[in-house]
Amino acid sequence: MGFSEAVKTCLRKYVTFSGRATRPEFWWFVLFFFLVIVIGGVIDLVLFGESTTAVTDTGASVGSETDFTPFTTIFGLLILLPYISVAVRRLHDTGRSGWWYWLGLIPLVGIIILIVWFASKGTTGSNKYGEDPQA
């Protein structure tokens, strides 16, 4: 499964929390999510950002920041549900309940455990969450 196919699949299954998702489907969508947020942030910075210049004895630096982020907020909210649903389907592929997604609320440890599970190979054949998406 390639990038565009994974994104189309995840957007088509916007709030489908049942079934299973392959590793490529999940990771391509994570990349898409990241790119959308970065591009939204750049657009917000260009349109609504403020530049500051700091001059010191050793040199100068320029920085930009903004507190108003409508594009990042809108894009993030639109993509949030498909991201959660593909993460739940990915957990299903590894034989775990989607409720394990809440493990991510535990700082650092929960996120690391979820990343390991998301990166691990799914169960071969069908499991209680559905047929093998690789088949």
Rank of each mutant, 00 (worst) to 15 (best):
G2V: 08
F3M: 02
E5I: 14
E5L: 12
C10L: 03
L11K: 01
K13G: 13
Y14V: 09
Y14C: 10
Y14F: 11
V15D: 05
T16Y: 11
F17D: 11
F17P: 09
S18F: 13
G19E: 07
R20C: 15
T22L: 04
R23K: 12
P24A: 03
P24T: 03
E25K: 14
W27N: 05
F29Y: 10
F29E: 03
V30N: 09
V30R: 14
V30E: 12
L31Y: 07
F32S: 02
F33T: 06
L35A: 13
L35Y: 04
V36E: 00
V36D: 01
I37W: 01
I37R: 03
V38C: 01
V38T: 02
G40Y: 00
G41I: 05
V42K: 01
I43T: 07
D44H: 00
L45I: 01
L45A: 08
V46D: 00
V46H: 00
G49C: 04
G49T: 04
S51G: 13
S51N: 13
T52P: 08
T53I: 14
A54S: 13
A54I: 09
A54C: 13
V55K: 15
V55H: 11
V55L: 11
T56I: 02
T56M: 09
T56A: 11
S61H: 01
S61E: 08
S61Q: 10
G63H: 12
G63T: 06
T66S: 01
T66C: 01
F68M: 03
F68E: 02
T69R: 00
T69E: 00
F71W: 04
F71G: 00
F71N: 00
T72Q: 06
I74D: 06
F75G: 04
L77Q: 08
L78M: 10
L78I: 11
L78C: 12
I79N: 02
I79W: 00
L80I: 04
L80R: 04
L81T: 10
L81S: 09
P82Q: 05
Y83L: 12
I84R: 12
S85R: 03
S85E: 03
S85F: 07
V86C: 04
V88A: 02
R89F: 09
R89A: 02
H92L: 04
H92C: 11
D93E: 13
T94H: 12
T94I: 02
G95F: 11
S97Y: 01
G98D: 05
Y101N: 14
Y101I: 15
Y101A: 13
W102N: 15
W102T: 14
L103I: 07
L103G: 10
L103K: 11
G104Y: 10
L105F: 15
L105K: 12
L105E: 11
P107H: 09
L108R: 06
L108P: 08
V109Y: 14
G110E: 02
I111H: 03
I113D: 05
I115G: 13
W117A: 13
W117E: 08
F118G: 09
F118I: 09
A119M: 04
G122H: 06
G122V: 03
G122F: 06
G122A: 04
G122N: 09
T123E: 07
T123D: 07
G125W: 10
S126M: 01
N127E: 08
K128S: 02
G130T: 12
G130Q: 08
G130C: 06
D132T: 07
Q134S: 13
Q134R: 15
A135N: 14
A135H: 15
